[in-house]
Amino acid sequence: MITGWQYKPRATLLQRLDPRARLAFYFCFLFSVFMFWDVRVLAGFLALTIVVIRCAGLSWRETGRAWLLVLGFTSFYGLVTLFTGQVGRQFYQTEHVIASWQAPLTLFGWQPVISISTERIYLALSQFARVVDIAAMTVLIPYTFDPALYGITFRRLGLPDKLAFALDLTMRFVPSLGRDFAMTMDAQKARGYELERREGGLLGQVRKLAPLLVPVIIHSIINGEEITDAMDLRAFGTRPRTWLRDLRFAPRDYAVVALSFTMLAVSAGASLLGYGRFWTP
């Protein structure tokens, strides 16, 4: 169950940075990672990710579950890549098979074969590194990004007052939505509802979610109407608004932005010149 934002004020470099600088870094990192399939380059990004995580000053107690989820998901994804060789065709034409295993059965005349090749191992490794990099950087956000700063961040990135505040408000509703969902789940379980029980086809499965989704959606709509009234009553949207919290770029923020764009430019250049494509020893 979500019990509010995971964010806590911490005296770390990461949380002292201007949110805009952090966003710039986040997106530059994201696009840079997307450009490479070379496991050696990706290992470099992984090292950078680990440095950033260390800088975040999070304890295992706070974040352990999130990390396990990320690792579990990416490992599964990596294994699928390893065994099926999916997406591999666009990177290599020939495979150096190390081991091959034939299933002792046939399914509709087809005999499953699982073969492990050097190419598949390296593809799986780079797939794993890419997903871990991106997931880990994303997981950091709710823990280290002050939710009270979302609105002003969007405002200073150039969005109009109303839209920036609407995004801020969305952030405020994430934990409420989580709680509504948990309460609805409990209330329906008490009526013998079991999500795990499978019955019916695809349509049946969707219908089975109605007892969960309908109350949560109705709640959001009603909440939305009430919040609109509350905001109207407090003069929202009548004139240009002040934002109590302001953002100011410090020299370190300029440095981070400069480094981020350098990283992106170097990555793009290298990628255009043909470096960092899929690699096997």
């Binding site: 979302y150 408000l169 405020r172 509350a230 407090r234």
Partner: peptide, 11 residues
């Protein structure tokens, strides 16, 4: 609960 708009008390 339904009229609070900000994530933080000061806000």
């Amino acid at each position: 609960e339904r009229q609070i708009v900000a994530t933080e008390v000061n806000g």
